[in-house]
Computed example of a mutant assay.
Amino acid sequence: MAQWLSGTVTDNHHWHANLFSVKIQTSAFDFTAGQFVRLGIDTHDGRVQRAYSLVNSPGNTELEFLVSTVADGKLSPLLQQLKMGDTLDVSQPASGFFVLDEVPAGDNLWLMASGTGIGPYLSMLGTTQLWQRFNHVILVHSVRTIADLVYRELITQCQHQYPGQLHYQPIVTREAHSGALSKRLPELIQSGELQSACQQSLTNRSQVMLCGNPQMITDTKAVLEGLGLTKNLRRSPGNITVEQYW
């Protein structure tokens, strides 16, 4: 049964007007990279709570969450306004099966995300399991604007730490950006442009994790299935592991 821990905000970094990362100090607890917890704030109308994936890796002393502000949302605008020293509640234990333990072996691992769906992958980057299991890890982040390309410093650090093992491919659909592709993710896979840019194959010997908005997942999954990849289920291991992010 879930319990609630009291947390104290240690940082609230605004990437732009509608995207921010909040760090929270709580009592230590274990989790697996890719899992989520619930954040809760008490209001005059009762507790408001929502699930968010942990961005920090296991073992870090602070919890971190990447949040997109929803204009008419009940919780995200409140989280955006939090300042250092403010308090909120964090559910424990963490939940979810969008974790590396659920992913079969493969020639390479594609981590495909749209928007804040990159969060679970950032947590995985800080684990030894990821690098020990897969010789080639391809992180694909599809966003609308350049300002949405978050945590680039962290990603670059990982590329230096694991040279030749991590390929980062940004996709920016509404602005031109050096090094970024510009079409929708399913189109880039269908045409082979993504595979060419990353210099990696996408076959039934690959593993793909998908996290982000439902339409991206539906369309990308259909294209991948057209290439011979199958959905990964516990009763029937395959190639495509999915997390519906909202």
Rank of each mutant, 00 (worst) to 15 (best):
R174W: 02
V143R: 01
E153L: 12
V70C: 04
F98R: 11
G106P: 04
M112Q: 03
L88V: 00
G119Y: 02
G106I: 15
V99D: 11
P163C: 13
A176N: 11
A105F: 15
P163Q: 05
G117Q: 14
Q159I: 10
T69I: 06
T127P: 15
S68I: 15
T156D: 13
A105T: 07
E187M: 08
G85K: 09
H136Q: 07
L166I: 13
V140N: 09
S178R: 15
E62Y: 12
S114I: 13
H160E: 10
S142G: 09
L100Y: 07
L149G: 10
I118T: 03
E153S: 14
D107T: 07
L111Y: 15
G96F: 01
P104D: 09
L139C: 14
I146A: 15
T145M: 13
S114K: 03
D107L: 10
T173W: 13
P170F: 06
P170R: 05
L185S: 05
N60F: 09
L63G: 14
Q132R: 10
I171K: 03
L188R: 10
F134K: 08
F65D: 00
S95K: 07
T116S: 01
S76A: 05
L122V: 07
V70W: 02
P120N: 06
S68P: 12
L78P: 00
W131K: 05
